[in-house]
Design a protein around this nucleic acid. Structure first.
Lengths: 159, 159
DNA sequence: CCCTTATCCGACCTGTGGGGTAGGATTTCT
DNA sequence: AGAAATCCTACCCCACAGGTCGGATAAGGG
């Protein structure tokens, strides 16, 4: 298994926010209470709180405290890359322990200090890393929202 | 983190076997004792035994028991896809718990029984899965062996 | 002003699996 | 016979995923 349920739950949370934001106009709609998302997705509220905290720190959602508060997408779904979402939830995307992303697209293996022998595998992980990030960066939240709306058409979101 | 060290160690093991096999002629060379691989890669022998057992079950390596025994690649490195190696070591490549690969390229999400709502994320994981398998299937062991030989040229393999 | 509703925050708990060890049985070569 | 290797099973440790709990803080409504 590659990603944990953190990523799954967090993505489902984002999709839910995206669906309720309607077409644009996110700032004017009421913020969505986490409890309503938890109910709709059948996920534990207190666990979602931890996840949404990471999304907020990554400035992917904004929060409104107090009664009638809740969460909103920080920007339109079409401008949110899933790469950012998954990274916020799971931490840096490294196919292996020894891998850090140093700069945009540049990858470093910590075994290089041992002499390159340890990292015959570097070529492979680099390619895998590229494949994953490409798939994640090439998918926006809007893509998922649209997909979700199509496939769950018979049970539209309440609003 | 996506893959565990099982994949890393196992791949390094395979690369080591590939390097020692020379150019083709794998069947005629002496088999490689696991202890020599463990020494060269500075990995615990007893742990490698577990990994190589999986590789043998997947028919990626063959073994020779007894004194002067050891392991060989089951076929030329150029005919070994890294997808098979990683799958043998880590099990099925699923970006998420709820994901099974049903048939070549076809993927199923176990949440579908709950109604599709749970899997707004299906589109995303499908793309990620595709990115990973494409990267793994498109890389052969021979690619890694060549890469390793180039980058560790100043410390050639003993033989 | 207080009550309700919500976000926020940190401590805590529990099971699973990664990562590794240990010991011995078996096979084959010298 | 004995050394050198694979093979096999059982076991151990602990970090972390996955989740709970209690409470602090903030805002709106009567």
């Amino acid at each position: 298994m590659l990603f944990s349920t953190k990523a799954e739950y967090g993505v489902r949370l984002m999709v839910e926010l995206g669906r309720r934001a309607g077409d644009g106009l996110a700032d004017e709609a009421d913020p969505v209470a986490l409890s309503s998302v938890a109910e709709a997705e059948i996920l534990p509220l207190s666990y979602l709180e931890h996840l949404v905290a990471k999304l907020r720190q990554a400035e992917l959602v904004t929060s409104v405290r107090g009664a009638h508060g809740g969460y909103r997408l920080a920007r339109p779904a079409s401008q949110i890359q899933m790469l950012d979402v998954v990274q916020a939830l799971e931490g840096p995307i490294a196919p292996m322990e020894c891998f850090h992303e140093v700069r945009e697209g540049r990858v470093l293996c910590s075994h290089e200090a041992d002499g390159d022998r340890a990292c015959a595998t570097k070529l492979l992980w680099t390619r895998v890393h590229g494949g994953i990030t490409k798939a994640l960066a090439g998918t926006t939240l809007a893509d998922l929202v649209e997909f979700a709306d199509q496939h769950a058409a018979r049970e539209p979101v309440a609003g």
